[in-house]
């Protein structure tokens, strides 16, 4: 094998590890920020690492059926696979991963896969809270997928490409970022992003005070650890995807972390100060303004 293959294999190894570390650290920072907003001191930033290590070290002896064991595995598979098709850094063979022509369309499907796996797993536990949580989560997904797809379709038509790497190549200067080139698509996508991240006001799926953490209510120990790991990796994957598409990507890791962190603060800070929407309110919201912005974006491009 030549050196580029080895580089690619090395990339496959370090990308999920980086995503895990960055995602979990972001989670810890979010907990501190939330605490400071609520006039508390908050846990140490490493708290989420200890939580996940503890969950992995717990014994787990719950059996509800085969899908219950496979649900969290599906979730983490979907997160890592999604990550493998997103170029993390611009023009770097190590971090390019599996990016190919048409990866945007592939990702549109892949990002749903984890939720569906979780839905199957949570459905088999037989817990009524899980069933309610799954129903809410899938309904919410139907809500935010519409503006998200509209925004991506607008961009795909505008630049006549379905490759993230080509989109990154288009944005070769600050003023060429897609956030300035197609602002309506960005608005639609960022509003859908709020729903994707499951922070308030769109946190009906996991609402611990209402339905006892929803789909996760019957999962403890290692399953919950898998779910949290997958959540952290998926968060990072989504942030990198948005950075790549709208914020011009990143040439080095420091730029990437600065950009993704600033992007992450949008749903986090929205979430801290907002109460929770009901499911139908959330769907109504997504099908109203973000969808209108998405349609405007497409119309501008087509006309």
């Amino acid at each position: 094998m030549d050196s580029s293959t080895w580089l690619k294999i090395l990339g496959y190894i370090i990308t999920p590890i980086t995503a895990f570390v960055v995602g979990v650290t972001y989670g810890g920072i979010v907990r501190v920020i939330t605490a400071r907003v609520q006039n508390r001191f908050g846990p140490p930033i490493t708290q989420n690492f200890w939580d996940i290590i503890k969950l992995y070290s717990k014994k787990t002896a719950v059996h509800h059926g085969l899908m219950q064991h496979w649900g969290p595995v599906f979730a983490i598979t979907a997160s890592v696979t999604s990550l493998f098709f997103i170029p993390v850094l611009k023009d770097s063979p190590l971090w390019l991963n599996n990016s190919f022509n048409g990866d945007i369309i592939f990702l549109l499907y892949m990002m749903v896969f984890g939720s569906l796996g979780m839905a199957l797993g949570a459905g088999q536990t037989g817990n009524p809270n899980s069933a309610i949580g799954v129903a809410r989560g899938l309904a919410l997904m139907v809500g935010y997928e519409v503006p998200f797809v509209l925004a991506l379709v607008a961009i795909m038509i505008q630049f006549k490409t379905t490759s993230i790497a080509e989109l990154m190549a288009v944005q070769d200067g600050f003023s060429n970022w897609l956030i300035f080139q197609s602002p309506f698509a960005f608005i639609a996508a960022i509003l859908a992003f709020l729903g994707m991240m499951h922070y308030a006001p769109f946190d009906v799926t996991f609402a611990p005070a209402e339905i006892a953490s929803g789909p996760a209510s019957e999962f403890g120990g290692k399953y919950l650890a898998l779910m949290q790991t997958s959540g952290s990796i998926f968060t990072f994957a989504k942030l990198v995807l948005f950075t790549d598409i709208f914020l011009g990507g990143a040439g080095d890791l420091v730029t990437l972390i600065v950009k993704t962190f600033l992007l992450y603060m949008i749903p986090v800070l929205t979430g801290i100060v907002n109460p929770r929407y009901r499911t139908e309110q959330a769907i109504t919201f997504f099908w109203k303004w973000p969808t209108v912005f998405g349609i405007i974006a497409i119309l501008i491009v087509v006309l």
Binding site: R31, G42, P43, P44, P208, S213, G220, G221, L224
Partner: peptide, 22 residues
């Protein structure tokens, strides 16, 4: 748990269900 005594400083957090609790 809330802002005055803030047990989250010590990593103490509420769990939603028995399966998740320590």
């Amino acid at each position: 748990m809330t802002s005055r005594y803030d047990a989250e400083r010590f990593g103490i957090r509420g769990a939603a269900t028995p399966r998740q609790a320590d």
